[in-house]
Design a protein around this nucleic acid. Structure first.
Length: 426
RNA sequence: GGGGGGAUACCAGAGCGGUCAAAUGGGACGGACUGUAAAUCCGUUGCUUCGGCUACGAAGGUUCGAAUCCUUCUCCCCCCA
């Protein structure tokens, strides 16, 4: 199946410039997607673009992944309601390195259509301001730049934008030109919020060299209830296991609602149509089994964190959410317990302190940071949302001592139903 | 340069001398129900040694008492030039 068809049936395609499909059908085409180095790790929101690029390569085309070492210094104003803070150079370099390393895991760097990583800092670092406004700025009118939705919105809602952010689209436009000229890269892809920036590029290529380049954008992922995709209570879901553990990552996908799962399985996995429809049939017949969520979480977790990490995440999940009693821990040795709780936040407390018994509030908000304040711990306990060793904590004055330790070493704290914490007494 | 308006909790937004830790809505979190789903209903949403303490852009002042009045400063918006 060709690339565009693939995106289409998966519901990923948002907009495509006329002629793009014809170009792709003619043969191997080079195309790119840019990634902003706003952090040293990508998060699940970036996965759509990673999938797009991977589909592109699988369809026999040559993918370029661009890391915005230069554009990251400026900040894309698209659909951000406020002027952005500039990152300092050290942070930026660290971010570029982190993102590059992650992207390398997803693309194939061998063969005729091997992937290529580029950093736009390489062609911008020696590009002088005068040179830039003569060679690039001259070809694009301010009228044109102001008519972009991203800019218009900022002007209309009164928040304004600096000249720096305003000029962002020229930088991105030049990126496209550079890759088109030097790498024969005729297509830029991105999220639908990038359409304006991408088209500035094709326009620039046309005006400067009379060349032809193309654009394709993908749907922005939203949850069925309209809220932002990729956020949890504790913030963004990252690909870096140090920021979001494989267990948390797996849980994030497993918790997807039924409605969203049906669209995510198409977007975030490579499962084909038949496999997906089979899963849907299964889901409809036995919704409580959550076949789609499980398949979704499995597929993505393995691709991002590997098979071993996935297995561990499943084991932890089965123990924490299954019907297994807490006593089960007594049958495990230390290594096994720690393995089971790998990815679950843990806290150390002193055994001596525990011997003198500690009340629930102090335990959860003083000795450990399960709750940020004692007041909150108290409220949660009163609301019936706290459990230790899978038993609800009745009052804030419930006491705990070494007798409560599982395996003579552990306490398992639960905040709500889904948030587990391991407390280790030493 | 001239004139006007504004800054309140995560966000929006009321309050305009005491009864204000601050209405209301949204969001978030928790509970019940369920399938670690959706919908619905309920609760919580500054910290605390529960005596208080810190808070309404910042700093001073008036007052027994200020988010509310006065002065200065910072930032934002609108109109005119």
């Amino acid at each position: 199946m060709n690339f565009v068809e693939e995106l289409r049936w998966r519901g990923m395609l948002h907009d495509i410039m006329p002629g793009t499909e014809e170009l792709l059908n003619k043969g191997m085409t080079a195309g790119y997607i840019g990634f902003d180095p706003t952090a040293d790790s990508l998060h699940v929101g970036h996965l759509t673009q990673i999938m797009t690029l991977t589909h592109f390569q699988r369809a026999g085309h040559k993918p370029f992944a661009l890391v915005g070492g230069a554009t990251g210094m400026i900040g894309d104003p698209s659909f951000k309601s406020h002027e952005r803070n500039l990152l300092d150079e050290n942070t930026l370099q660290k971010n570029v390195a982190g993102i590059k390393a992650q992207l390398e895991n997803f693309l194939d760097f061998t063969g005729a259509n091997s992937a290529v990583m580029v950093n736009n800092y390489d062609w911008f670092k020696n590009f002088g301001f005068l040179e830039f406004i003569r060679d690039v700025g001259k070809h694009i009118t301010v009228n044109y730049m102001m008519s972009k939705d991203s800019v218009k919105k900022r002007l209309e809602d009164g928040s304004g934008l600096s000249f720096t952010e305003f000029s962002y689209q020229l930088l991105q436009g030049y990126d496209f030109y550079h890759l088109w000229k030097n790498e024969n890269c005729a297509l830029q892809m991105g999220g639908s919020d990038q359409w304006g920036n991408i088209v500035t590029g094709t326009e620039f290529i046309r005006r400067k060299d009379g060349g032809e380049a193309f654009a394709l954008t993908t749907q922005l992922i939203k949850k069925a209830d309209g809220t932002k995709f990729g956020k949890t209570e504790s913030g963004a879901v990252w690909l870096d296991p140090k920021r979001t553990t494989p267990y948390q990552f797996y849980q994030f996908w497993l918790n997807t609602t039924d409605v969203d799962a049906k669209s995510y399985i198409r977007i975030f996995t490579f499962l084909d149509k038949a496999a997906i429809e089979a899963l849907e049939t299964e889901q409809d017949a036995a919704p409580h089994q959550r076949a789609i969520q499980k398949a979704l979480a499995k597929d993505i977790t393995i691709r991002v964190h590997g098979e071993a990490a996935y297995q561990k995440a499943v084991k932890s999940s089965e123990f924490l959410f299954g019907n297994v009693g807490i006593e089960f821990l007594n049958e495990l040795n230390d290594t096994e317990v720690l393995g089971l709780f790998e990815g679950v936040p843990n806290f150390m407390i002193s055994r001596n302190d525990l011997e003198n018994r500690i009340n629930a509030v102090d335990l959860l908000a003083g000795y450990t940071a399960v709750f940020p304040s004692k007041g909150e711990a108290k409220k949660m306990i009163q609301g019936g949302g706290v459990a230790i060793n899978k038993t609800k904590v009745g009052t804030a004055e419930d006491f705990f001592n070494t007798d409560h330790l599982i395996n003579n070493k552990y306490l398992v704290a639960q905040k709500g139903k889904k948030n587990y914490f391991l407390i280790i007494a030493e």
